[in-house]
Simulated scan of single mutants.
Amino acid sequence: MTGCNPSSNPLELEAALYLESILTSVKRAINTGDWDDVRHFFAPEFTCQPVFRPCSSGPDVSQGLCGLEEYIKMCRSVLPAMATEIVNVVTDVDLRHGRAASFTTFRTIGVPEGVVRHSVGRFQWRRIQGEWKLTSHMSARGMEVE
């Protein structure tokens, strides 16, 4: 499911739908481990505050910001046990300032094994040299669902 601010103009709605399609491609990369087709959507300064760090030796909690390569490594470390899907996404676009934010709910299966979690996330976008780029992602762990 996707959505856009209903007061948005048609150009903002079109941009929101485009950004949401990129998130679908990123989700596919998370689930398959193949990031080649989506790397160009990330800004060089992309940062992520993940809800978990499965490849760390510490507790299963966020430990600050990481860059794209560490994020990819974390996602790959739990494959093939993990699968994630976007349950809902709403994107607010500000074309005038070249910024956008996508607010998502996710369902993740397999981290840890046999557990289903619902989480929320925020992806921030910026238009850089005419192209939309992901600049940050932050997520918050949801409840376990049986």
Rank of each mutant, 00 (worst) to 15 (best):
R53Q: 14
L23W: 00
G114R: 03
T24W: 12
F123L: 03
D37R: 12
E113K: 07
F46D: 03
C66M: 13
F52A: 14
R28I: 04
H118Y: 13
S8W: 01
F41D: 07
F41W: 10
I30R: 04
V89H: 00
A29G: 04
E69N: 07
R99E: 09
S25E: 13
V78S: 07
N5C: 06
R126D: 03
L23V: 04
P59Y: 11
R96P: 00
E146W: 10
F52W: 12
S8A: 14
R53V: 10
Q129T: 08
I30W: 07
I30A: 03
W132K: 01
G142S: 07
T84M: 11
N31K: 01
K27L: 06
W125V: 03
H97N: 14
R53S: 09
S119A: 13
T108M: 05
C66V: 14
F103L: 12
R117F: 10
E144K: 15
E146P: 11
H118T: 13
T91Q: 03
M74I: 13
I109S: 12
T24I: 13
C66E: 08
V89Y: 00
T105M: 09
F41K: 06
V111L: 14
L23P: 00
C55D: 15
F123R: 00
S136L: 02
D37Y: 08
S102P: 00
T32Q: 02
E144L: 13
A101T: 07
R117L: 13
E14A: 15
I72R: 00
V116Q: 02
P10I: 08
V111G: 00
F42G: 00
H137I: 07
S119K: 01
E45W: 08
D94C: 12
E113P: 03
R28D: 08
V120Q: 07
G110P: 00
G3A: 07
M1E: 06
G64S: 05
C48H: 05
N9V: 05
E45V: 10
V26T: 05
C4Y: 11
I72A: 02
L23Q: 05
R96N: 04
C48E: 08
P6H: 01
S25C: 08
R141V: 10
R76A: 02
S139Y: 02
R107H: 05
A29F: 02
F123V: 10
P54D: 12
G121N: 00
M138H: 04
G114Q: 03
D60K: 08
P54L: 11
D34S: 04
F46A: 07
G67E: 08
R117M: 08
E144R: 15
S56F: 09
Q124L: 14
V61M: 15
F41C: 11
I22N: 01
S102T: 04
H137D: 04
E45R: 14
T24F: 11
S21P: 02
V145D: 09
T105F: 05
V90I: 12
L13C: 15
W132D: 00
G67L: 05
C75E: 11
Y18E: 14
R53L: 14
D37M: 09
L19M: 09
N88M: 13
P80K: 02
S8M: 01
F41Q: 09
F52Y: 13
S21D: 14
I86E: 07
D94G: 04
T32S: 10
